[in-house]
Design a protein around this nucleic acid. Sequence first.
DNA 1: GCCTATAATTATAATAGTTCTAAAACAGAA
DNA 2: TTCTGTTTTAGAACTATTATAATTATAGGC
Lengths: 156, 156
Amino acid sequence: MHQHHHELDEAAVHSLFCAHSLRFTRQRFAVYTALASEKVHPTADQLFKKLSRSDSGISLATVYNTLEALVKSGLAQKLADGGTSARYDAAVDDHLHIRDCATGSLSDVPEALGQKLLDNLPQHVLKQIEDELGFSIGRVQIELIGEYTRQAVEVN
Amino acid sequence: MHQHHHELDEAAVHSLFCAHSLRFTRQRFAVYTALASEKVHPTADQLFKKLSRSDSGISLATVYNTLEALVKSGLAQKLADGGTSARYDAAVDDHLHIRDCATGSLSDVPEALGQKLLDNLPQHVLKQIEDELGFSIGRVQIELIGEYTRQAVEVN
DNA sequence: GCCTATAATTATAATAGTTCTAAAACAGAA
DNA sequence: TTCTGTTTTAGAACTATTATAATTATAGGC
Ligand SMILES: [Mn+2]
Ligand SMILES: [Mn+2]
Ligand SMILES: [Zn+2]
Ligand SMILES: [Zn+2]
């Protein structure tokens, strides 16, 4: 389930971290809430700059460390940018991404639409691939690549 | 159409480059044939090392330059590795990739199987996404993420 | 509320991958 | 063959990320 846009108070994040065996620190709280409040999929550096602006004197190394910890404990995922840097996503469920060729930006397909596509994948073909290749498919990652034909509501 | 494993002589590559408005050089020939003969999806550095070993005294900068030229002219595609570096693929058609969680390796789903899945995507859902988001889908990029349950025939 | 063990943070250095620079070599057209 | 724009090249520069090692903070037991 997507967690973009939810309000996260300190207590909620504390117990979330606790449930994932992650120590609670001021810095991790800041990074996680900054990430979870993003509509887009920020780079480590973008998060660092955002956090530097707002307050806390958090270091870039900690942003990297925290993101790695979040990913390892299943509270975030790391996405490959088309370019040189990695992007992070506080939504850890299966969901589709859209890549706008024109800008290179990466955004989400709305939950319902994306789920509909995932639910209508031809299961028999996936099964056949698993059987023929001796491979167990854990996740089908889909990216729709193309261009906006009218102004997107929000593009990064 | 996949071009892995095809034999490529100098004349064939010459006319291929010509058709794509790419000058023919010894180095580009070497990079392109090295890439096209790979069953896996090599990094720039892997290609450089392979070429250094075999002969030609080609420079790393040229490997990068050539790969960029190939991608720009549609003779190769650049794939995002999960990690830090980019991978290249001489197959420019739509095709599915498999990522082995255990090793991080990226390999191809056989043409026929992959096409079968692409042909059986729910077109009405794709259409709905295009309509609702005002986005024109040029390509659906799919990656199957999981683990081999028996020994894969060839893994990098 | 303190103490302590352990883990996280930080500044900084190091590394890895890629791109830039500017000079020399080359391809292809005439 | 000559000419011109393109490509190649070594090396420097740059960007993203990871490692190091000293400092600081957290969580839990008292
Ligand atoms: Mn960065
Ligand atoms: Mn490299
Ligand atoms: Zn997302
Ligand atoms: Zn491929």
